[in-house]
């Protein structure tokens, strides 16, 4: 097995993020210096005139900047880990590729709404069989099927190359992505909706059953958004901020028993009532989280 630290000790990631952030020592994301988009909320103001106050505030702009840095740091790491995964595929090292598969995907899962806003990256990188016409199917899940179902990497080298190319392209695009208020406030809930609709049902990783990695990554991505918005939410609605923070902790605790060797147990190891508990913990968090849009009210 790979050393899972590779992904999990990255500056802001993994369980470390959730756990330590709850202990309030999750510091700013990687020391990446990037140009934050200058006018992130320009379009937003026209539609949401009341929003002007909050979204123009320095605090909110800082939030957008911090989140953008997070996205870039994640994508940097995503490129590196995908490179290692692709190398393993091309070396026909099935065991290594299998071990690298789930952890490398987590970077993408954390920033999925951003990737989705940038065009076709989601179908290229993350389409499941049947999501796209068979002859266009590529990306991680194609390789997942080869590794776990076909148990053969024949003909997979071009798929691997293409994947790496798409991931690198994503890295280029996130540099200049314009993150506006609606994207941030709805992005957090979207991440949890991803969990509700495909991860908690075991539909995302139908061959590898590594759904809990994606589950955790989506939650971590949502937490990152909440964290950058937390001061703004607190200023507007202390109770809401406290409730969301509490539910994140509860969800983290619900997930705890399924952490194993710095990774996660397989979805197929979960009992029915355990799945139900996880699903309900997501709902419990997503409901108050869906209210953070109130911060952009006047």
């Amino acid at each position: 097995m790979l050393n899972p630290r590779i992904s999990l000790t990255a500056p802001i990631l993994g369980m470390a993020l959730l756990v330590s952030a709850c202990g309030n020592n999750a510091s700013a994301p990687a020391n990446q210096t990037t140009d934050a988009p200058a006018t992130a909320t320009a379009g937003q103001q026209a539609e949401q005139p009341q929003a002007a106050n909050t979204t123009d505030s320095e605090q909110f702009q800082d939030a957008v900047k911090a989140y953008h840095q997070f996205v870039i740091a994640q994508t940097d790491q995503f490129v590196k880990d995908t490179q290692a995964f692709v190398d393993a595929i091309k070396a026909n090292d099935m065991e290594k590729a299998k071990a690298l598969y789930a952890p490398s995907r987590m970077y993408f899962e954390r920033i999925e709404p951003i990737a989705e806003s940038l065009g076709d990256f989601d179908p290229w990188i993350d389409a499941r069989e049947g999501d796209v016409p068979a002859n266009e199917w590529k990306g991680f899940h194609r390789l997942e099927k080869a590794l776990w179902q076909d148990k053969s990497l024949d003909g997979m080298a071009p798929v691997a190359d293409q994947l790496l190319q798409d991931v690198k392209m994503l890295r280029v695009k996130v540099e200049g992505v314009e993150i506006d208020a609606p994207m941030l406030v709805t992005g957090a809930v979207e991440l949890l909706n991803e969990v509700s609709s495909s991860k908690v049902t075991g539909e995302e990783e139908r061959y590898s059953h590594t759904d809990l990695y994606d589950f955790a990554a989506n939650v971590e991505g949502a937490y990152e958004i909440f964290k950058v918005l937390q001061p703004t939410v607190e200023a507007k609605n202390k109770e809401l901020a406290a409730e969301i923070d509490k539910r994140f902790k509860e969800l983290d605790a619900t997930l705890q028993p399924y952490r194993k060797d710095s990774g996660y147990v397989l979805y197929t190891d979960l009992k029915e009532d355990e799945v139900k508990k996880l699903s309900q913990a997501i709902d419990a968090l997503a409901e108050p989280l869906s209210q953070i849009g109130t911060v952009v009210e006047g």
């Binding site: 949401q48 009341q50 929003a51 208020a181 609606p182 709805t186 209210q291 849009g293 952009v296 009210e297």
Partner: peptide
Amino acid sequence: ESNNALVP
């Protein structure tokens, strides 16, 4: 209802 388009 609040009519804020950004919250459910």
